[in-house]
Amino acid sequence: MALEPPRRPAALAMRPTVAAALFTGQNRSRLMDLVDVDPDLVLEDLHSADARSALADAEVLITGWGCPPIDEPALLAAPRLRAVVHTAGSVKDIVTEACWRRGIQVASAASANAVPVAEYTVAAILFANKQVLNARDDYARLRDQDTDWHARLAVAGNYRRRVGIVGASRIGRRVIALLRGFDLEILLTDPYLHPDEADRLGARLTGLPELFAACDTISIHAPLLPQTAGMITRALLAAMPDGATLINTARGDLIDQHALEEELLSGRLSAVLDVTTPETLPASSPLYTLPNVLLTPHIAGSMGNELQRMAHFALDELECWTKGEPFNDPVYRAALERTA
């Protein structure tokens, strides 16, 4: 009988609480079947004595939220490291230029993490067009009156509304795919996209000014890059139709925060904000209590049992690597120039 090849050595680098949530039950068993790893040793510091010991033999590093940058000193302690499998989305804060210079293969679970963000966005779009926030507040305020709700919510509804998507990213594309089942007109803006590709996605390609002037609901899915910081300007926000809704599940720094607050304080626009600048707003911020704002603490991405989707995705990539097969969804250095 042929002997099974030895499992290749690996190490975990992330917050211990994240590892505990990802690798439970069958996921923990599968992880230990695929690689030689101590699942109870989870590195938050790649320069400690424990880290140097674990990295000395590791051929693959399984990373997640809370992993520090894999810098040159960490790589010197990991002479055999050949791959990084990231259990979350962006690897920009983890995989350094030193990793790319060594030729380390990288995979991430960004596609898996895109799923709940897109679902959150679609729910927000449908609720925004249905005027749910207004209906909630009016219902509470007028609960002792005989109100004609059809007349009061005459502008509500999702039939043939125009929805604007800023960025044909993984999440932006998935949002468009999920919206195809509804009677909506989708406008899309992305400087790297050809109109024919937008047509195939089910959207009409347009520029930012037209999109902001024409759409009832606009959702931001662009990456935060030097050239995109502040891309949603005061002028674009001012061009939005009265009563329109802006949705942001990407990064707060993409939007002129002061201009957005002014528009929201005026009551002219509504917003669904899962991210802001700063990431946690000061307690005095009016956005916490404005009736036309739905503010959430960066929860659109994987939460709770959705972490299991990312774990399954990452373990599939790890299995590919152990078999000598290419990753299903590799991360390439060149692509990071225009992705999150």
Score class of each variant (00 low, 15 high):
M1F: 15
A2K: 14
R7A: 06
M14Y: 06
L22R: 02
D33P: 01
V35S: 01
D38C: 01
L43F: 09
L46R: 08
D50L: 10
R52E: 13
S53Q: 15
S53C: 13
E59W: 10
D71N: 10
D71A: 12
L75H: 09
L76H: 13
A78W: 01
T87I: 05
A88N: 13
V91F: 11
D93S: 12
T96I: 05
R101S: 03
A107Q: 06
A109D: 01
A110M: 13
A118E: 07
Y120T: 10
V122R: 03
I125N: 04
N129F: 02
K130C: 07
Y139E: 05
A140V: 14
D146R: 15
D148E: 02
D148H: 09
H150N: 12
A151Q: 14
R152H: 14
V155A: 14
A156I: 10
R161E: 10
R162T: 14
V163C: 05
S169P: 09
G172T: 04
R174E: 10
V175I: 12
I176E: 03
L179N: 03
R180N: 12
D183T: 13
L193R: 08
G202N: 07
A203K: 05
G207D: 15
P209E: 04
L211W: 07
C215Y: 04
A222M: 08
A222S: 14
Q227Y: 15
G230C: 05
G230F: 08
R234A: 14
A235L: 05
A239D: 05
T245P: 00
N248Y: 05
D256N: 08
D256S: 03
D256Y: 03
A259P: 06
E263F: 03
L265N: 08
A271D: 07
V272P: 00
L273Y: 11
A283M: 10
N292H: 08
V293I: 11
I299E: 05
A300C: 07
G304F: 00
H312K: 10
E317S: 00
P326D: 01
A334M: 07
